[in-house]
Amino acid sequence: MTPRLVRIELPAHLRTLAGVGREVTLEMKGAITQRSVVDALEARYPMLRGTIRDQVTQQRRPFLRFFACEQDLSHEPPDAPLPDAVVSGTEPLIILGAIAGG
């Protein structure tokens, strides 16, 4: 299977933690889903483990959401395929932090 280049946009604190810019690109094979993208992201940047989803429950953290192609994908099943535009690298998967707090 041809590897695909998947783009992921990270919130500011996670960029700092991983030492990356606004967007990272991951080379992935196989199904491109929320789960597989976060798996690949954590494998490439181990310091992000536990920051996007709980390490024990694997649940998305409640103050984070997944967006792509102007759609909120947060409540889609984690193994559902991501939109074609994300799979093709045309659009990024956006991991967005809630606008909240002090």
């Binding site: 604190h13 310091m47 536990g50 920051t51 709980d54 953290r61 103050f63 984070l64 909240a100 707090g101």
Partner: peptide
């Protein structure tokens, strides 16, 4: 720690 990204 923080409320968005959990514990490090």
């Amino acid at each position: 720690t923080n409320g968005w990204f959990g514990q490090l």
